[in-house]
Structure formats: structure tokens, C-alpha cells
Amino acid sequence: METGIKKNGGNHLILIQKGTVHDGTGRILAKTDILIDAGKIVQIGQNLKAPGAQVIDAEGKCVMPGWIDPLSGWGTAAGRGQARDNDETSDPLTPQLDVVYAFDPDSMMYQELWGYGITAAGVAASNNNVLGGSAAVFKAYGRTTEAMCVKANAAMKGSVDEKVKQTYGPRNSAPMTKMGIFSALRELIAKCGSEKEEDRKDPKVQAFKPVLEGKLPLILSCNTKAEADAVLKLFENKPVKLVLANMYQLDESLLDKDCGLILGDLTDGFNKYNAAVNYAALFSLIEAGKPVALSAFGDAVSPGREILMWNAHGLMAQARRLGASLSSEDVLKMLTSVPAQLLGVEDRIGSLTEGKDADIVIWSGNPLETFRALPEIVVISGEIVKGEQA
């Protein structure tokens, strides 16, 4: 596998000079330098000096944070067509499971996600269980699970969409309906409030209780408005950090709801829901400051590494069609700082900020404005993994 990797180990000084820096929070900084040391961004400014540093000339280039695919199955299968280790369907309620044990560094690196600007991903259980277990955030490049893990137990992942019914219905096993799905959730919620010793010691209760206490975000996949409304009703008046995923039937009623959104794959031609997305409502939510992130997965299990970029371009095209005010900087936030915020890793990744991990992509042009832009140099955790050689 040809990677063009310069194995500097992320431990020496790198000075990126005179790039046009798009920092992931909406700011654009012209002719700006970024100094990297020991895997971190240590200084951002103009005319920086760093004797002995490896210098990368970024003049005329776009320098961006690495993109984050916030809800994925990356790294959970050794190869295409092989069983995915994030899909435990022996029980529809498995909040006690941990996706860290499904993660394989070689699998994560198989498609070289960084080749399309992706430097990290939220990795989670599939949509086949009501609760599938805890999600984690991993870098796209690394040598061990421990080194690649940005945050374990980043969120609880579940689903109330039809994938659950399709999984358990053919077995004639509950939950076969939405009634069954929400009954299972309500029973677990009730158990979490129980004083019985057997309930308090239940691994499922112990895993889910932090969600109800607002200590652990809950990501639930919802394909329809009815599913989303039922989830919002179930958790209203509870301090749950709720993130609704897929959300193909969103509308403006979500504006006053306390939840984040992760859009499912908008390019999947086999998805019967994504053609009905209300883009005008979506753009209104984004303009109002609703945290909305883009994702490549949805209900699919094996998208390509290019799908996240296609979703970004598709969104820009819809904005032009409707005359919406959505800018490429808004879309960049949906690929960087917003997913980092939703996954609770904004202290490490998601923007080009002093003190954060040096996950940086130097593009030949703006990749959100032209398909001709190429990721010429990619740095992950201060290590050059694509491009410039020593």
C-alpha cells in the first residue's frame, strides 16, 4: 500500500508558512504560519521563526483542519465484505458494549481516509440495535488503538429507525415495531431509577445511567420526523445531551429543541428517505446556529472515503439552488468544529487553534468550492502522512 508517508513520528518541529488558513470556526487568515511541535499546534501567526523546523511552503494553498466523520463504522471490519465487529445483534439493548474493542487500526487505515481530508472519525455501533453501546473517536492514522483513540466512551449510540425492525422482525423477536423499540427504552429508563439492588447492579443500567444524568451524549438514528418527535418526547424534561442522526425529515420545529444533528448520507441513491430532505429548513437551522454535522454513513455500512466530500458539495449545490446564504466556511464547520463539539472532543480536534492536535490538511484549492482541489499534504497528530518528504 503506497502512502507517501514521511514517518517523522510527530515529534519534530514543522512550520507551515504563508497559507490561507481556514480555521474551522469561520475565520480565514491570509498569509498565516502554523508552528507544530510534539504533535500540537503551538503557534499561529505571521512571519513565525523556528530554527531547525521542517518548513512547508503553503503560499497560495488552503490550510484547513482535518475533517471529522462523526458517526461511522470505520475501523470495525478487517476488509470489505467481512463481518463488522460493531454489529452485535444478539440483544437489541446492549449499552454496556464498547466500540473500542471492535476497533482495528489496520482496518481504519485500509482506505486511507486522509486522502480525502478526513483525519478523525466517530466510530460507533451499527443502526441495528435500539442501544448498541458506547462510541469513540479515533484518528484516521496510527499504529495502535491506544495511540489513535482521541476519546473512548464519547457517546452512547442507538437507533429507533427501521433497521432495528428489519433486524429483529424476521426472527419473530422483539422489538418488531416502533412500539417495541420505545417500550424497551422506557423499561431501561425505569430501571435506571430503580432502588432495587439487582437493577442497580445491572450492566445495562450502569452503562445507560450516565446518559440520563447528562454526563454522556446520546446519539439516536431517526429516519423520519415521527421517530425524531417520539425521541424528543421520551427524553423531554431530562438532562440528556441528545444528538439526532440521519434526520432526513427535519424541519424548523427542531430550532427550539435542545439537540444536535448529524445528517446521514445525502448521496445514497438506495436510501428512500434522503430525496425528501427539506433543505430550506436545514439552512434555516444552520443559519440560526443549530449544531449540524455532516456524515458519510447513514444506514449504509460501507461507504467510500469520498462520500463525505460528496455530501459537502451536494449541500453547497442545494444552497445555490435555493439562494441560501450558506457559505463554504459554514460547511467547513459542519465537517470540523461542529462534529468535534457534538462528540466532546473540541478540546483536542476540530479547529486550527493553538494547543490543539496538529491535524491539518493543505489543499491545492478550496475543496468545498471545487472538485479540482487536492489534499497535497496531510498532517495527523503532528506526523506528515501524505505529501512532502524529508
Rank of each mutant, 00 (worst) to 15 (best):
G26S: 02
Y110H: 14
Q166A: 09
I44S: 09
T267Y: 00
T370C: 11
K40E: 07
Y116L: 07
G382F: 03
A58S: 10
E112F: 00
R372K: 11
M247E: 15
L13Y: 02
D87R: 08
V137A: 02
L322S: 06
T20L: 02
K139Q: 11
D161Q: 08
E146L: 05
K204H: 07
K61A: 14
I68H: 07
T144C: 07
G9L: 01
G73L: 07
M64F: 03
T167R: 15
G355C: 05
M1L: 06
G52V: 10
V164Y: 08
I44W: 07
R143D: 10
Y141N: 03
K18Q: 14
V379A: 07
E383P: 00
G264C: 05
K386L: 13
P367Q: 14
F297T: 00
L261K: 00
K272Y: 08
Q43N: 10
K191I: 06
A228M: 15
R80I: 03
L282M: 04
V361L: 13
K241T: 09
G214R: 02
S107Y: 07
S325I: 04
P239I: 15
L308M: 06
P210C: 06
E88N: 05
D256R: 10
R171F: 09
F283Q: 01
A293F: 13
T119W: 12
A102W: 05
S337E: 01
N47E: 14
H313D: 01
Y101W: 10
G365Q: 15
L113C: 09
L29R: 09
F283E: 04
Q43I: 04
A358T: 14
Y279A: 10
G19A: 00
M176E: 15
L35R: 02
K356H: 13
I181E: 11
W363E: 12
G132W: 09
I286S: 00
A276F: 12
M156V: 11
T336Q: 01
I34Q: 05
V63L: 13
L113A: 05
S253E: 11
R305Y: 10
M148K: 07
A190L: 11
H12I: 00
L13P: 00
L35T: 02
L332D: 02
L342Q: 12
D251L: 12
L13G: 00
L322H: 06
E198Y: 05
Q249C: 10
R186Q: 12
K178D: 14
F208Q: 14
A226L: 11
I56F: 13
D265I: 02
K215F: 04
I380A: 03
S328D: 13
A77K: 06
E354Q: 15
I34L: 14
A207C: 06
D268H: 09
F270W: 04
L185G: 10
L308H: 07
I16Q: 08
M176W: 05
G60L: 13
L113T: 09
N278Q: 03
P375R: 01
V55Q: 15
L216H: 06
K356L: 14
A275E: 09
D357C: 12
G66V: 10
K204F: 00
G79A: 15
R186Y: 04
I219N: 00
V137E: 02
V123I: 15
S221R: 11
A83P: 03
D91E: 11
Y101A: 03
N366C: 14
K61C: 15
V164Q: 04
G298C: 05
Q389N: 12
K204Q: 15
P239F: 14
N86Q: 08
K201T: 08
I181D: 07
